Amino acid sequence: MTHNDIDKLVHSWIVAAADRPADPRVRDITVRLVGDLCKAIEDLDIQPAEFWKGLEFLSAAGAANELGLLAPGLGLERFLDIRADEADAKAGIEGGTPRTIEGPLYVAGAPVCHGCARLDDGTEAEQGEVLFMQGTVYGDNGTPVPGARVEVWHANLLGNYSHFDRTQSPFNLRRTIVADEQGRYRLRTIMPKGYGCPPGGSTATLLDLLGRHGQRPAHIHFFVSAEGHRKLTTQINIDGDEYLWDDFAFASREGLVPPVVRVSDPAAIAAKGLDKPFASIDFDFSLHADSAAAPATEVERLRAAA
């Protein structure tokens, strides 16, 4: 069957068969996706058993809530960022802190703190390395942005996120920090660890068949927003991680790997109220002003809330 034959068939199924007004956008997307899938079936000689196995895989991934993990694992979420970068460039928006993927593990409603926050609940304080992170939120003109909201979340030492991991306390390693009058934020937490896709899960199974690993480097997620500015979705990676530039989710980007300073000076340790060395990261965020010429940065998608 030729591609032209397939296009005619799909048009008859989706467009000609309609007996009431259709949503044009949904219709056009459906026609394209169904047509492309039919062409792949024809070109690759996909057999019925393979087709149904594929549907079973997607059903299992959805039941396990892993579709949000498959999207970054197959590069789709990174592709959306590439397109957003291209749209920004066309609108004349350049520089600033690079965006990168959100991932599927944000939870709305984290406690709000002003100026500074402690993210961890202390349960892993003995095993983990204490990390202090601090910086300033700037605008396009290089001036601080007072009151900017810095939402932050990351995994625990086992690579698990609170809310999805019910053994953790609510909002462990999650906070919203409102920057002070100089646009500064500060946080204390534990150094996150890298982790992998759930063993035996849909994502890990597919990646294994593709000859790929499912590991992520240690990282910390951020939403940074302020009135009159474009929302930034980004994350930093922890320098020195084995998978720093080999992230299965393709989220590593230049400009998002700040230096990690290890502090062992007794006076500095005492000043922090600690009895052991700690790590420190300085990282500033640079936001762009709102622009009607570029697509919105607030992405509507289903997110968890507690």
Rank of each mutant, 00 (worst) to 15 (best):
V178P: 00
E242M: 05
K276N: 07
R166Y: 01
G142N: 02
R99H: 10
D284K: 10
E181W: 00
G115R: 07
V137T: 04
L80W: 14
V224Y: 07
V15Y: 03
A270D: 10
D120N: 13
S264I: 00
D239L: 15
R78T: 08
E129A: 08
D140N: 10
D43W: 00
C38N: 11
D121N: 12
A293T: 03
A71W: 10
C197V: 02
L74C: 06
P24R: 08
G273A: 09
L74V: 13
A49N: 05
K272F: 00
G142K: 06
T234H: 07
T176E: 10
A293Y: 00
A251T: 07
G142A: 02
T97K: 09
G240C: 02
D85N: 15
F250D: 12
P104V: 08
N65R: 14
E254F: 12
A125V: 07
G196M: 06
D208L: 05
E227V: 06
G228S: 10
D140T: 12
P170N: 01
E94V: 15
P170S: 02
D28M: 11
G68Q: 05
F250T: 11
L74N: 03
L58R: 06
P170V: 09
N160F: 01
Q47E: 15
E181H: 04
A40Y: 05
D239Y: 10
W245N: 06
D275Q: 13
T297A: 13
P199E: 12
A84T: 08
R301K: 14
C113T: 06
L76Q: 09
Q134T: 14
R174M: 14
Y138Q: 04
D247F: 02
T136D: 03
E181A: 10
I236L: 12
P146M: 05
G135F: 06
W13E: 11
C113W: 01
A89P: 00
F51I: 15
R188I: 03
M133E: 12
P144G: 02
R216V: 11
G196R: 13
A292Q: 11
R303A: 11
M1L: 11
A108W: 02
R175W: 05
A294W: 05
I29M: 11
G147T: 04
E56R: 14
L119W: 08
H114I: 05
R301S: 12
F285N: 12
G75Q: 08
A110N: 03
A71R: 14
H213G: 06
E151Y: 03
T205G: 07
L158K: 11
D282C: 01
V299E: 06
R83A: 12
I46K: 04
T123P: 00
L173I: 08
D5V: 01
Q134E: 15
V112P: 02
L55W: 13
L209T: 05
E129H: 07
L58P: 02
L80M: 15
N237G: 12
E42A: 15
E151H: 07
V112M: 08
Q134P: 00
P217L: 04
H219D: 04
D282M: 01
E56P: 00
G200D: 04
E42N: 14
L302S: 13
Y243F: 14
A60V: 07
I46V: 15
Q215A: 14
A268S: 15
Q168L: 13
V178W: 00
I190G: 04
Q235Y: 02
I6C: 01
I14L: 14
H221Y: 04
